[in-house]
Amino acid sequence: MSPTSAYVPLLHSDPDAHYDDGVFENDMQSKESFEQPIITKPHFSRVVYWTCALSLLFSGFNLLILGFKITMPNVQSSSHLEYASSYIGLDTLYKNRTPSQFAPITSFPILIAQVNQSDPRAVYLDTHRWSSTFGTVYPEDRRVLLTPTVTTYLQFWAGDFGMERCVLKLMVPSAVEDDVALSNVVTTLQVWQIKTPGKLDVQKLSWAHRPQRSDLVASWVVRPNSTFQSMEYRCPSGSFQTFELSCLDSGCLVDFHQKPKQKDLGFWLLQHSSL
């Protein structure tokens, strides 16, 4: 090719080519149909349907139970349930037998607590303790305190079979200056029996929520070097024996700590054989 020859651009398409108009239209229609979005109707499977139905059913059932709980009366606390006897059948075994002679059982109170008339809603918890080289020690002794406004409650557990004749005993030693604080005035102590179905709740015991009195067991004028006993009464096996100690005279005072190993001081429940 000579340098003076003119440049002729190539054709982009063959001018002699002839296209079929029908083929072109079909191709455009298929392209348009491909570009259009496919719209499908929502479809729920049976699993989703039954899952929703069961959820609604259980929700309604829970609401029904909640409604029953609201309308039902309060269930009695387990602390007021009767203690099951561990001596089933022994009463039949000892029937028509020669009366047995057993030594009396002396029981230490399982609970000693105070209430205060001058502070009706106060709850007094005896949690005295002391620290030692091997940890904190909670001693077994419990305080007995009586004043014109302070009342003390005692509770015993009469759990033994055939020991259902009980006597409440109070022992005051002679060395009162070391163990017992007594007022100089006459101190008249009244002992009331309390009917309780179970153990007293010391977490709630106060003057405003004190248990109701039942019978007057004894009335004693407390002096040093004295021993007092109530009349004998029946204490069924497997029962709680609860007493209220109150002071009648103005200015009266009884204050001491009762210990399980010091048998000559404090209140004790004597259980005698009833067989």
Rank of each mutant, 00 (worst) to 15 (best):
residue 9 P to S: 10
residue 9 P to W: 00
residue 11 L to W: 04
residue 16 D to S: 14
residue 20 D to T: 07
residue 21 D to E: 14
residue 22 G to K: 07
residue 22 G to W: 06
residue 27 D to T: 14
residue 30 S to C: 05
residue 30 S to W: 00
residue 33 S to D: 13
residue 37 P to V: 14
residue 37 P to I: 08
residue 40 T to A: 15
residue 41 K to Y: 07
residue 42 P to Q: 07
residue 47 V to D: 09
residue 48 V to L: 13
residue 48 V to T: 13
residue 48 V to G: 12
residue 49 Y to D: 13
residue 49 Y to P: 05
residue 49 Y to A: 15
residue 50 W to N: 11
residue 54 L to F: 11
residue 57 L to S: 15
residue 58 F to V: 13
residue 60 G to C: 07
residue 60 G to Q: 07
residue 61 F to Q: 12
residue 65 I to L: 11
residue 68 F to N: 01
residue 73 P to Q: 11
residue 73 P to W: 05
residue 81 L to C: 14
residue 84 A to E: 14
residue 84 A to Q: 14
residue 89 G to Y: 14
residue 90 L to A: 07
residue 93 L to G: 10
residue 93 L to C: 10
residue 94 Y to N: 09
residue 95 K to A: 13
residue 100 S to V: 04
residue 100 S to G: 03
residue 101 Q to P: 00
residue 101 Q to T: 06
residue 102 F to K: 08
residue 115 V to S: 11
residue 115 V to C: 07
residue 116 N to E: 02
residue 121 R to K: 05
residue 122 A to P: 05
residue 122 A to H: 12
residue 123 V to Y: 02
residue 124 Y to F: 11
residue 127 T to G: 03
residue 129 R to M: 03
residue 130 W to P: 08
residue 134 F to G: 05
residue 136 T to A: 03
residue 138 Y to I: 06
residue 138 Y to C: 06
residue 141 D to T: 03
residue 142 R to N: 10
residue 143 R to C: 11
residue 144 V to K: 01
residue 148 P to Q: 02
residue 149 T to K: 11
residue 152 T to D: 10
residue 154 L to G: 04
residue 156 F to C: 02
residue 159 G to W: 00
residue 160 D to N: 05
residue 162 G to E: 02
residue 165 R to T: 00
residue 165 R to M: 12
residue 166 C to H: 04
residue 167 V to F: 03
residue 167 V to W: 01
residue 168 L to S: 13
residue 172 V to Y: 01
residue 173 P to N: 05
residue 174 S to P: 00
residue 177 E to Y: 01
residue 179 D to T: 04
residue 180 V to R: 00
residue 181 A to I: 13
residue 182 L to G: 12
residue 183 S to K: 08
residue 184 N to K: 15
residue 187 T to S: 15
residue 189 L to E: 07
residue 192 W to I: 15
residue 194 I to S: 13
residue 194 I to W: 10
residue 195 K to T: 14
residue 200 L to T: 01
residue 201 D to K: 13
residue 201 D to S: 14
residue 205 L to T: 07
residue 206 S to T: 05
residue 208 A to P: 06
residue 210 R to F: 08
residue 210 R to Y: 00
residue 211 P to F: 12
residue 213 R to P: 11
residue 213 R to V: 13
residue 214 S to I: 02
residue 216 L to A: 10
residue 216 L to R: 13
residue 217 V to Q: 05
residue 218 A to I: 07
residue 220 W to L: 10
residue 221 V to H: 03
residue 221 V to T: 10
residue 221 V to S: 08
residue 227 T to N: 10
residue 230 S to P: 04
residue 232 E to F: 00
residue 236 P to W: 01
residue 239 S to T: 08
residue 243 F to M: 09
residue 244 E to G: 06
residue 248 L to P: 10
residue 252 C to E: 03
residue 253 L to Q: 11
residue 254 V to T: 04
residue 257 H to R: 06
residue 258 Q to E: 03
residue 259 K to T: 02
residue 262 Q to T: 02
residue 262 Q to A: 08
residue 264 D to N: 12
residue 264 D to H: 10
residue 265 L to T: 09
residue 268 W to G: 09
residue 269 L to W: 09
residue 269 L to D: 02
residue 271 Q to P: 08
residue 275 L to N: 01
